[in-house]
Write a protein that binds this DNA or RNA. Sequence first.
DNA 1: TTTAATTGTTTCATTATTTGAACCATCAGT
DNA 2: ACTGATGGTTCAAATAATGAAACAATTAAA
Lengths: 255, 255
Amino acid sequence: MGTVSKALGLLDILARTQGPKGLTGIANAAGFDKATTRRMLVELATNGYVVQNADSREYELGPALQVLGKIREERFSLYRTTLPFVRTLSEQTNETVHASEYSAGILLSICTEHSTKPIRVNLEQGQKLPLHATASGIAFLSASSPTFIEAQLRKPMVQFTSKTLTSSESILASIHEANARGYSFSNQTLQDDVSSVAAAIRDQSGKPIGAIAIAVPSLRMTLNAISEFGPLIQKTAEEISQQLSGRRARLSRAS
Amino acid sequence: MGTVSKALGLLDILARTQGPKGLTGIANAAGFDKATTRRMLVELATNGYVVQNADSREYELGPALQVLGKIREERFSLYRTTLPFVRTLSEQTNETVHASEYSAGILLSICTEHSTKPIRVNLEQGQKLPLHATASGIAFLSASSPTFIEAQLRKPMVQFTSKTLTSSESILASIHEANARGYSFSNQTLQDDVSSVAAAIRDQSGKPIGAIAIAVPSLRMTLNAISEFGPLIQKTAEEISQQLSGRRARLSRAS
DNA sequence: TTTAATTGTTTCATTATTTGAACCATCAGT
DNA sequence: ACTGATGGTTCAAATAATGAAACAATTAAA
């Protein structure tokens, strides 16, 4: 692993843990030496990616991330487009709904709205969704080219739960099912007791760029629920894809 | 410069230039070798910080930045707090208004609203504001501790325009003036034909954490304008500081 | 108050990664 | 087919990263 990835890993740690963290805590979490960790944090700090509290000496995410995030959002905002859809879908179903964007072999959850029910699926900001072990991933694959699918299936697949599918054959079967139905379905493949339905979001050319999913406690994911949520998520994904392709002109005319 | 800083510099380049960029373009802009640049871009890409268009092979900022930016914003959002103030101030004055946050020796512009006048000050997203050469910086310094000021004045100060102040004495004089008036004033110290008034934003303890400024084409920055904008920016900065300290409880009660 | 323990910071010889010139591959235009 | 760009790859040499250990500073315990 290169030095850059290690440093970026520190950002991930700061993002995942709530609140600021001390040097040794970060070093332990990352598995790096104190000295190494510190040098990286200092370097990140001089670039504004983290800030160190002058009193407590603890580190936190820095303003540069906000700046870059906002620039990225202005240029290409799957987030902005999906947000209203995710919201309404979550209100309609009162279940957790999330959109994700493909990047570097995985889907990155970019937009989540939680159910208000006492038992609900909880999703962290920026949760990583492996292609082989999530409904979103299967939906994404089912909208991908055969060569892409092949390449992904050749990669090693982590077994997250006892129900995670890790063989090419079983994944291909899921993909075919998803293609037949128009949406994908996963049952506890990434986390125990979580089931999801998902559909791919596509760009103008039809190439998938992400996915949207409804994540439900497996208890509530009955056949009835599937047949209600499935078509819903399929329709929503299509609407988002359409808005991403065609409607830009119309939107800018209106503003 | 460490490898990490170099890689982060690439992100900066992608942020500054509009739209995607090819490998050689980025390498040239950064002044690194193609091979070096590529290795870094690949590493950034595998972490989601940049994405490469599969067809054009061009690179762009990646979704990880949005994710981290949003997490940071949730935890500590000077941006969210200042945005409404920046907006109303910009409407009131019809001039460019921007807020900035201190990080690693400079102020980072985090929130800008532009004037609608044909001649206006234009400010890039994430513009870096050196402490010695901007009204925001002087305002920030004038709210800082003597030891901090001293440390900053010992650093080398870049001469951006013919009017940039680069001696400790002249900067100290500006700081004292700002303290006397309650707001700072700069005249073409960073860019030609741009004048600004600014005031510091403080946290609970009174320590400055950023600044807010009105940036005006020097032509329009008359004595009248200064005496109108100055007290305005001072009052706004105080309101923001108050909201950052005390009002969190009240706001959450209201929601 | 003294002692011990914890955390942050610096150093420096060792080690491993980064570097960049040269090379190859691919594509677009002539 | 030739030419000039651009993206991508290789590998010995150069350099930067590493981490154990020492040190400092702060906090907790005795």
